[in-house]
């Protein structure tokens, strides 16, 4: 089936089996490799993207549900010239080690900050449940708090 949606701000249309997980459409049809395959079972969070602003595990999201939706991946979060506050904070604290899980964490964090602009440690603990095997959690927590500050000051400027 044909599915149309907005991807990182651009109108996009794909032709695929309607049950194909969004993850594979992003990675292999649209060649956006930043969204990762970690488990394919919506358990690890490496494939997290945003659909209409909500953090979604793209491995368990059939492409047919994407019709008319606004989808954002790590490639659309920010770029080197204009990093998203979450990406800036991640660089400030040098969070990534192997880096594989990081796009999923950043997408989940960015989605959280839209709804909880100033998350407490408890908010972070309960909402950010992706898996990082390298154990970057301790830096990530600091980076999330920094990202919240950056995000707020950015919003104030708007």
């Amino acid at each position: 089936m044909k599915v149309s949606f907005t991807l990182n701000g651009a109108p996009t249309e794909v032709e695929t089996d309607e049950q194909t997980p969004l993850l594979w459409v992003l990675r292999d049809q649209l060649d956006l490799k930043g969204t990762k395959f970690g488990c394919g079972k919506a358990a690890c969070g490496a494939c997290t993207v945003q659909v209409d602003g909500t953090a979604i595990r793209s491995c368990s999201y059939a492409i047919k549900f994407a019709e008319g939706k606004n989808i954002r991946t790590i490639e659309g979060l920010g770029n080197r010239d204009n990093p998203h506050p979450v990406q800036q904070a991640w660089m400030d604290f040098v969070v990534p080690q192997c880096g594989y899980c990081q796009p999923g964490f950043m997408m989940a964090t960015a989605a959280l900050l839209e709804k909880v602009p100033k998350p407490t440690d408890e908010d972070i603990d309960r909402n950010i449940v992706n898996v990082c095997r390298c154990g970057t959690y301790t830096r990530m927590r600091k980076a999330i708090h920094r990202a919240a500050e950056l995000h707020q000051s950015q919003n104030l400027k708007k």
Partner: peptide, 12 residues
């Protein structure tokens, strides 16, 4: 490798 890992570059 900080930027490639923060901006989701296809490096794996």
């Amino acid at each position: 490798d900080l930027a490639p890992k923060v901006f989701g570059d296809p490096i794996f």
